[in-house]
């Protein structure tokens, strides 16, 4: 599919969704479901409100810190698991136990340790990011061709050097697939963490508005979160495409923005 065609399709899809929303809200006629036009009208107000912008910036900053720390911790673990059966045997059951737990459900406990501030929320985001990145790094590392590692060994490269210089770049396409999932999960855990520890941030605006029955604002915030996610994902996808342009096309992600 060429770029203009897919861009057009996206515009049509977005317009269709808004039209359906508008129509459904008029037909339903309930307070908790304002039409799209009223909700969207709130967005300029929110985005020109200095306090709201600070809240949003603080959220995005926590998300970024949690994401970067999560990736930095997850990639070495995943890569080592992929190259050592013993390390994999140690981490796998642990990960299987943590995997189905909604990370935001840990928020109340974490708040007991770290308070309601940034540390708790960042830790929850960190937990949300690490699992998919570990999993994909593990798969990518496992799939590295044996002969490629042997070729490197014959050049005199030791185990650690091969892990950093061969396994890491060879697994990069797969690692970035994990990072993309991690990025979306970071956004989700960011909002839910702020739902539970309401003190500042994007989620704080959203849920305060809900408490005060300002449904226009609630929906406007949902749209803002959605657009934020879309923009972050599109930016990441561009970065990913540049970083792994050398890779065979089999690694391309179908649900991309390209």
């Amino acid at each position: 599919m060429t770029r203009p065609v897919s861009a057009l399709a996206a515009v049509i899809a977005a317009a269709g969704l808004l039209a359906a929303w508008e129509l459904a809200a008029w037909l339903a006629g309930i307070d908790g479901f304002p039409p799209a036009s009223r909700a969207l009208a709130q967005i300029p107000r929110i985005l020109t409100d200095g306090e709201a912008l600070l809240d949003i910036a603080a959220s995005v900053q926590r998300m970024a810190v949690g994401f970067v720390l999560g990736v930095a911790a997850a990639v070495p673990i995943g890569l080592t698991m992929g190259r050592s059966r013993h390390v994999a045997a140690f981490f796998n059951p642990l990960l299987m136990m943590i995997y189905p737990v909604p990370k935001a459900a840990l928020m109340p406990i974490i708040m007991l340790w770290l308070g309601v501030g940034d540390a708790s929320k960042t830790l929850v985001i960190f937990l949300g990011v690490t699992l998919p990145v570990i999993y994909h790094s593990y798969q990518g590392s496992r799939a590295v061709e044996q002969k490629m590692l042997w070729s490197a060994a014959a050049m005199g490269m030791g185990g650690l050097s091969r892990l950093v210089r061969i396994v890491l770049p060879a697994a990069l396409p797969e690692i970035l697939v994990g990072c993309r999932t991690g990025l979306v999960l970071a956004l989700i855990t960011m909002v839910t963490s702020e739902m539970i520890a309401r003190q500042a941030g994007l989620g704080n605006i959203l849920f305060n508005a809900l408490d005060m029955a300002q449904y226009d604002t609630v929906y406007a915030m949902i749209v803002i979160v959605g657009v934020l996610g879309f923009v972050l994902d599109a930016a990441f996808e561009r970065l990913r495409a540049r970083l792994v342009a050398w890779a065979a096309p089999s690694h391309a992600i179908i649900a991309g923005t390209t």
Partner: peptide, 20 residues
């Protein structure tokens, strides 16, 4: 006892570094 640059392998699978 292990690989050495004195013995250079060439494999059927090429095993090139695709990012280089």
């Amino acid at each position: 006892t292990g690989p050495s640059p004195d013995r250079g392998p060439v494999f059927q699978e090429f095993a090139l570094f695709p990012w280089k």
